[in-house]
Design a protein around this nucleic acid. Sequence first.
DNA 1: CTAGCTCCTTGATTTTCGTTAGGTCCATTT
DNA 2: AAATGGACCTAACGAAAATCAAGGAGCTAG
Lengths: 239, 239
Amino acid sequence: MSTTIVSSEVEKLAEIPLLKRLSTEAREQLLRGATKKSVSRGEMIFFQDDKADAFFIVLEGWVKVFRATSSGDEAVVGVFTRGQTFAEGAAFTNSNYPASGEAVTDSVVLCIPVAHLANSIAADPNIALAMMSSLSMHLHQLVLQIEGLKTHTGAQRVAEFLLNLSSEPAGSCTLVLPYDKALIAGRLGMKPESLSRAFQKLKSYGVEVKQNRAIISNVQALRTLVEQERTVVMHSSHG
Amino acid sequence: MSTTIVSSEVEKLAEIPLLKRLSTEAREQLLRGATKKSVSRGEMIFFQDDKADAFFIVLEGWVKVFRATSSGDEAVVGVFTRGQTFAEGAAFTNSNYPASGEAVTDSVVLCIPVAHLANSIAADPNIALAMMSSLSMHLHQLVLQIEGLKTHTGAQRVAEFLLNLSSEPAGSCTLVLPYDKALIAGRLGMKPESLSRAFQKLKSYGVEVKQNRAIISNVQALRTLVEQERTVVMHSSHG
DNA sequence: CTAGCTCCTTGATTTTCGTTAGGTCCATTT
DNA sequence: AAATGGACCTAACGAAAATCAAGGAGCTAG
């Protein structure tokens, strides 16, 4: 299902980072060609290798972007929610999507055709600056992800993930895991079983996981774990 | 050492992908604020966490971009050469470099201040399009790197690396490893020892490595190895 | 020539992680 | 209340890769 944006909605959409810095006119211009799309859990939003003719913004729900190898393995490249843009890199390559997008919960996404984006940029070059900022943020995200994969153990990556969710500077906190554990595992580059083991290890650092709730009793302790050297983590027999 | 660009050089620089699509005027405008910088092997070009006030294009040599954790581990995020841009993401975040850049051979880089870039974009919005294309390409690169780390074994990643260097469609070929093995290992997310062992495994697929020369006797055989499922690779006892 | 250096390889050992298979818990259905 | 199915955890095994330690190969300089 797919509908155009009515002008009464434009104001609400101004909250979105990509649109925030734009003038009202630019925002209206860009949204004029956009459509709202409701997708249910498990539904594909775009397919790897298809012609990239649109990029997206999540309005509601969660979306995963992943790359599938020819042999069936899949690598999660990003998981996005409310206000975040995705597949915007493909909009400038004039080629195909390098990954696929799928809704992991019932979701609503804003779909902006690349042809319309090009027109909008021509009409107001400031839109280009907003896009570049968005691209840069994604670039940064991916750099962090690569660093994590290369230099952190599984348990460290899980700890990092939890800390990002919490955004508490110190002390203790309770948080809700935003999507199921299989996807968390994929996002962190491991199998569900390994994620399970990682949670086990984190128990000795004061992390309690029950269902989709995690209780961190000492945020700082967890933070020091993340900052520890790989070697040290491996040799400490905390479990 | 750092010098401005003389107009006789501008023509030669038109080969660079980022500058290729620009009009002569736009190219001259952008290069007016650029400086050429000679750096020797091992010299830093920019530092992680420093204010990001410039981005770069490699004119000569090889440059590595890496992220260092607080505990001394380092993750190579990219290795760039002739004609490639790097750190251009930082130019739009108005913040700090998320990684460091270092020359791995004696090199010459073009240094373009972000303030000047902003001016140039204001003067000619087409420059923004070129930058976006460049950003997108990097984004794509990183996505591929993440996929590789998550779904390929060490030997598969090495094979992929060799295939990228060769660009031969089939048959056999000889190629020169562009930088030292410790860096190749870092680039591929493994330790030098593991790289060495990966080369050993590839012998049974017709790859001979002597010094900094690699001979691939059958490009296609290598390609099928890369496309194989992780599971299959793991259980086949080719050695 | 050889002493010292850096880079690379090799071997032995340990740790991590994927795989497989079986089990628990819980909600929904019948 | 029993059965079903799904999500999750656990355990045992094997493969991959890191670590630690030692040994070569090739280069440079005295």
